[in-house]
Nucleic acid binder design. Structure first.
Length: 615
DNA sequence: ACCTGCCGCGCC
DNA sequence: AAAGGGCGCGGCAGGT
């Protein structure tokens, strides 16, 4: 069963069964939606909606979880960009609707936007049905007395979203008939794509990610403010008065200025600092710490210490704590599919850059545990699977792929194996890494050929595609102009050099894209499977379920970082959860690479604090 | 008072 | 101990 959710005239919401779109299942006010969804969810439908970030928070706030969805914004971005769908798009020639351009990565992509019906137009009568006919029609079983029995959304963490709803239209508001039309269009593109099964799986996994992104925010990452404050005090000293710098930073700044013999230089200004360093005889091209480290001067050590503290203060200091930690939870705004490769992004809070030294503040609730798991050397394993490289998969058989490469006699040390692998995937040509890559190529020719091919395609300006069918963007017009200028008869040496450099740069991007993007798919399938598994585990036998919250007493995901997840679980369920996490990793490998023998072992820990997980 | 671009640096 | 890919964010610089 598939049910579309979209807007209807006069601020209402409509539900349409895709098996019978001749008339809606229900047309109701926004307040009635959670109860209606909860009722229909018993039939385990796939909810089809414009954007999980638009529709799902209010449901979760009312305590309603859904099992699966199709997220049109994310699905649209994939099918519009995929080289596997090019023929299907051309054959069908159905226009992409304008509202899809809100999708991550789709804003600048060519599409038949001009001929798409505008939201306003499709909000009126359509071929499917006229919602105005359904003024008073809705199934009594969904009806919710506005005065009473509706699950309360007051007290939700997201007052702002409620306010936006009250004030009118939200981004992602799409008339239900347009939702149906777009869903059917996407399904036709999937069916006629080069690899329908893979594309279907990708859209399902991406949509599961869309649900998880909202759920992670709703659940929140348990955060101990006291521990965080003690980290800050240990590093920075006492909390300074508002608008002041911590005394320890001031002391370090004084030390630097003294050593440089420039008592007024402002260390926070790159321009001033660079000038001061040079005047003191330290010949650097930038103020970056990697370059500073190379120099021997009494100003360097306190300067590096100052920079480290300045970073901590501005990125995760007391004001971050006040802004982002509410009621013991960190609730970042995840953006699934927010990057070109399909990795997630976040907006606000820097959730994907939590410094190691503040992770101590991630602490399980009393009676709860954190199950922390990350996939060991995910990307080279994915590369082995993608390339069907038996030799590399052999080296990956144990828990330490780099050790496996050493044991195979390819390089001498684990460190060499690591930089060589990274160099192969990122396109290093110089340094230790670049020198080791040829040895890797001899040992693992299939894997190396795959990334080399991806790089060659990119250098020509072509698209490359992941395991499941997500394609890299085409290079921007400015890139193509640079290439065109170089092939002009009177191109200068500078033009040619610039074009070569830009071509190689795009080649490094596409080289990495296939690996990073396919690894993101593995992680998505892992997490989606885990989410399903967790929902089948019984609530804790020792923690009484309190009402009103979606995540009381049951294990749930609270964090995701590219190849790493954290589950917050009642302590008595931790071992079951850990086993499920590992099984789902193995399942994801089989799902994506069939019986090709590549392992996906995890570093897995059951801990009270994130800092106690090996990282 | 804003905006954009760039740097530097945290994470994978 | 830094080079290659992907990001977000804070801060400064330089513009309007």
């Amino acid at each position: 069963m598939r049910i579309a959710i979209g807007t209807a005239p006069r601020g209402r919401v409509a539900l349409v069964d895709l098996a019978d779109p001749s008339q809606p299942l229900a047309v109701l006010g926004p307040a009635g939606l959670p109860a209606a969804v909860a009722e229909l969810e018993r039939q385990r439908p796939r909810w089809v909606w414009s954007d999980a970030r638009r529709w799902y928070p209010a449901l979760l706030a009312a305590g309603v979880r859904v099992e699966r969805c199709h997220d049109l914004l994310l699905g649209g971005a994939i099918v519009e960009g995929s080289a596997d769908v090019v023929a299907a798009r051309a054959a069908g020639a159905e226009p992409r609707p304008r509202w899809l351009s809100a999708a991550p990565n789709l804003a600048g992509v060519d599409g038949a936007i001009a001929v798409a019906p505008s939201v306003a137009a499709s909000a009126r009568a359509t071929a499917l049905f006229d919602l105005d006919e359904f003024d008073e029609v809705h199934d009594e079983s969904f009806s919710v007395d506005a005065a009473g029995s509706a699950p309360a959304s007051a007290g939700s963490a997201d007052a702002s979203e409620g306010a936006a709803e009250a004030s009118g239209a939200l981004a992602g508001d799409v008339p239900v008939d347009a939702v149906v039309v777009e869903y059917l269009r996407q399904m036709r593109l999937v069916e006629t794509s080069a690899r329908p099964r893979a594309m279907q799986l990708l859209l399902a996994a991406e949509s599961a990610g869309a649900l998880i992104g909202v759920e992670l925010r709703s659940a929140g990452l348990p955060w101990d403010r006291v521990v965080h404050e003690s980290v800050l005090e240990r590093e920075l000293g006492a909390k300074p008065k508002h608008g002041w710098k911590p005394a320890r930073m001031e002391a370090l700044a004084l030390e630097v200025r003294t050593a440089l013999e420039q008592p007024t230089v402002n260390l926070d200004s790159q321009v001033e600092l660079l000038r001061a360093l040079r005047r003191a005889g330290i010949q650097v091209a930038s103020t970056g710490k990697w370059e500073l480290r190379e120099h021997d001067h009494p100003a360097i050590e306190p300067l590096l210490a100052y920079k480290r503290l300045a970073r901590l203060l501005s990125a995760n200091g007391w004001s971050w704590l006040d802004e982002w930690i509410v009621d013991g939870r960190f609730r970042p705004d995840y953006v699934p599919g927010g990057t070109a490769t399909g990795r997630w992004a976040t907006s606000g809070g820097g959730a994907l850059q939590l410094p190691k030294n503040v992770r101590a503040a991630v602490v399980a609730d009393p009676g709860w545990k954190l199950v922390v798991a990350d996939a060991a050397q995910l990307e080279p394993r994915v590369l082995a699977g993608l390339a069907r490289d038996e030799a590399l998969a052999g080296a990956a058989r144990g828990t330490d792929l780099y050790r496996g490469i050493v044991d195979a006699g390819v390089v001498e040390t684990r460190d060499q194996a690591k930089v060589a692998i990274l160099g192969a995937m990122y396109g290093a040509t110089t340094g230790d890494s670049g020198r080791l890559v040829p040895r890797l190529a001899r040992a693992y020719p299939r894997a190396m050929a795959l990334v080399d091919r991806a790089a060659a395609v990119g250098e020509r300006g072509g698209q490359v595609t992941t395991n499941l069918g997500r394609s890299s963007p085409v290079p921007p017009a400015s890139w193509r102009e640079t290439q065109a200028r170089a092939s002009d008869p009177d191109a200068t040496a500078v033009d040619e050099r610039r074009a070569r450099s830009a071509a190689r740069e795009w080649g490094r991007f596409t080289r990495n894209f296939v690996v990073q993007g396919s690894a993101a798919e593995w992680a998505l399938c892992w997490m989606a499977a885990l989410r399903t598994r967790l929902s089948t585990l019984a609530p804790s036998s020792t923690l009484a379920a309190r009402s009103g919250r979606a995540f009381e007493a049951v294990p749930h995901l609270v964090y995701f970082l590219h190849d790493e997840i954290i589950v917050h679980t009642p302590a008595d369920r931790a071992d079951e959860v850990a086993a499920a996490v590992a099984e789902c990793a193995a399942d994801s490998g089989r799902l994506l690479f069939g019986d090709f023998p590549v392992d996906f072992p995890l570093d897995l820990a059951v801990v009270d604090s994130y800092a106690m997980a090996e990282g």
